[in-house]
C-alpha cells in the first residue's frame, strides 16, 4: 500500500467512525419495502370493506363521505391502520436487527434513542391533529395530513440516521400538500405515499447499501 492509499484508507476509517458514532445506520431498506407492501394490502382491504358497505347501501357515496359516517367505518379504518403500523414496525425491527448483526453493530445504542425521539414528536403531534380533524368530520384531510406529518417526522429524524431518508421525508411532505388540494383522492395519495414511495425508497436503499455486501 503506498502513502496515498494509506491516507485514503484513513479518511474512509474516519468517515465510518464518525457515522457509526453519531448516526443509526443499521436501518434496513427491506423494512421500507415491507412497510410499503403492508400499506398497499391494508388500503386494498379498506377499499374492499368500503365497497361491501356501499353494495349493502350502508354508505351512499364513498367520494363525498357524509359527516354522519358510522362508527363502524371509522373503527375499521383505525384498526386497519393499526395492524399495518404494527406489522411494519415488527418487520422493520426484524430486518434492522438482522442487518446490525451482519455488520457487527449493536442495535440499541443511544443513537436509536435520538432517532426515535425525533421521529415520534412530529408523529404524535400529527396523530393527535388527525384525530381532531376526524372529530370535526374533516375526513378528506386526514389521509394527506398523515402523509404531511410523517414526512416532517422523517425529515426531522434524518439527522440521526441514513441521510437519504430526508428525501423520502420531503417527497411525503410534497405529496401530503398536493393531497390537501385534491381532497377526495386521499386513498390514492395515501397509497402512493405509504405504499409506492416506501417500496421504491426501500428497494433503492437495499440495492445501494446491502445487496452488494452480502
Amino acid at each position: 500500500m503506498n502513502e496515498k492509499e494509506q491516507s485514503l484508507q484513513q479518511l474512509r476509517d474516519i468517515k465510518m467512525m464518525m457515522e457509526r458514532s453519531s448516526r443509526f445506520i443499521s436501518l434496513s431498506g427491506l423494512s421500507g419495502v415491507f412497510a410499503g407492501i403492508f400499506a398497499l394490502i391494508g388500503a386494498a382491504v379498506f377499499y374492499m370493506y368500503l365497497n361491501t358497505q356501499m353494495a349493502s347501501g350502508y354508505l351512499s357515496i364513498a367520494e363525498s363521505l357524509p359527516a354522519e359516517v358510522s362508527i363502524d367505518y371509522l373503527t375499521f379504518g383505525i384498526l386497519d391502520a393499526a395492524v399495518i403500523l404494527l406489522l411494519s414496525i415488527g418487520f422493520g425491527i426484524y430486518f434492522t436487527t438482522r442487518k446490525a448483526k451482519r455488520d457487527g453493530l449493536t442495535i440499541w445504542d443511544r443513537n436509536v434513542g435520538h432517532l426515535l425521539i425525533h421521529l415520534s414528536i412530529p408523529l404524535i403531534a400529527g396523530g393527535l391533529f388527525c384525530l381532531i380533524l376526524l372529530s370535526y368530520g374533516l375526513f378528506g384531510l386526514v389521509a394527506p395530513c398523515t402523509l404531511l406529518f410523517y414526512g416532517l417526522a422523517l425529515l426531522n429524524a434524518s439527522k440521526y440516521t441514513l441521510d437519504e431518508i430526508k428525501w423520502l421525508g420531503i417527497s411525503e411532505i410534497v405529496l401530503g400538500l398536493v393531497g390537501c388540494i385534491y381532497i377526495g383522492y386521499g386513498m390514492t395519495f395515501w397509497c402512493i405515499g405509504f405504499g409506492v414511495l416506501h417500496i421504491v425508497y426501500g428497494a433503492f436503499m437495499y440495492f445501494r447499501y446491502e445487496h452488494k455486501q452480502h
Partner: peptide, 22 residues
C-alpha cells in the same frame, strides 16, 4: 483515530460505547 473521530461528532462518549464502537 477512531476515538478522536467519534469525539469530533459527539459532545462526549463513555468508555463502554467507545469499546463496542471500536
Amino acid at each position: 483515530l477512531g476515538v478522536m473521530s467519534s469525539l469530533m461528532v459527539n459532545e462526549s462518549i463513555d468508555f463502554l460505547t467507545l469499546k463496542t464502537l471500536l
